[in-house]
Amino acid sequence: MTWLKDVIGTEKAIIAMCHLLPLPGDPYFEKDKGMDYVVEMARKDLRALQEGGVDAVMFSNEFSLPYLTDVKTETVAAMARIIGEIKGDIKIPFGVNVLWDAKKSLDLAVATGAQFVREIFTGVYASDFGIWNTNVGETVRHQYRIGGEGVKLLFNIVPEAAKYMAERDIETVAKSTVFNNRPDALCVSGLTAGTETDSQILKRVKDAVPDTVVLANTGVRLANLEQQLSIADGAVVGTTFKYDGKFENHVEQDRVRVFMDKVKAFRER
């Protein structure tokens, strides 16, 4: 049994993404509609996800494009306001992800009571956002300094829109990440949000670290969920739950329900 059962309530857990609209300071923030609109759209998506039957939800500033690796204070403040305003509506376990800043993800988690965060905690990358470095030792020490030692850390080891600067096979990355950092989970992704996670890479990671939770991080959909969940311990799902399966749209409750019905049938088998 993994920590997924204790924290989320089930093995083969589905963590749904609640993608927040552009926030103050982001290039595409809709100033005429303001923060009240962002809050209400987050509430709408949260309700659709919960009523559709997902196991947990993760809030992220997915539309803060182009992303920063040193996120500004106004972004974290806006995310804290949103979660604070809708927290009374949250009925399932939740996590947060401040893209792409591990320390600020932990700050937000401690401030809001989130049970987990997903981030790029380790590695150095050539990315769409420039040279992307990390400092996991400092990040984890920051976690303990702010009282966040109970927050589960989901390490994304196949970063989206980025590549390791040194050639390392994925098994080596998985094994060294687990040995050096004791992650609560490893997340395996495709190139971008909504892009299918390569099932062969997923299997290689799980085989390399069989005692660590491994999550399919992108592109899980009706057509491949059984294949992905037969390898992974769970999945992070966002784009699949949206109208027409398009990244830029809002969540469609019926799509969530159909997906989760199939997941529950798979778990019962």
Rank of each mutant, 00 (worst) to 15 (best):
F121R: 15
A78C: 04
V71L: 04
G88M: 08
V140K: 14
F129E: 15
I86Q: 09
F155Y: 15
A56C: 06
G130D: 05
I86P: 05
L154V: 08
A114H: 13
P159K: 13
E119P: 01
E138A: 09
I82T: 07
E138K: 10
I90W: 10
H142C: 10
A109T: 00
V76G: 02
G130T: 10
H142S: 11
G137D: 10
T112M: 10
D70N: 15
H142K: 13
I92D: 09
V76L: 03
L106E: 07
K87F: 11
G148E: 09
L99M: 14
G147C: 07
N61T: 10
E160T: 14
D101Y: 04
A80K: 12
Q115T: 06
D70V: 14
H142L: 09
N133V: 06
K91W: 04
R47D: 08
T122F: 12
R81D: 11
I157K: 14
I131V: 14
T122D: 13
W132I: 00
E62D: 11
G113M: 03
V117T: 14
V124T: 14
E138N: 05
L154S: 01
V76N: 03
D89N: 06
G148Q: 09
V117N: 08
R118L: 12
V158A: 08
N135F: 01
T73C: 00
I90C: 10
F121S: 11
A48Q: 05
K91G: 06
G53T: 06
W100S: 03
V110D: 04
D89G: 00
G137R: 13
E119V: 02
L154D: 01
E160M: 15
E62Y: 11
M58P: 07
A111Y: 08
G95Q: 12
R145E: 03
T75A: 03
G53E: 04
A77L: 06
F129P: 00
A126G: 13
L108T: 04
G88D: 08
V136K: 15
E149H: 11
F94S: 09
E62W: 07
D89E: 14
A77P: 00
R47P: 00
V124N: 15
L108F: 02
G95M: 08
D89S: 08
G150N: 14
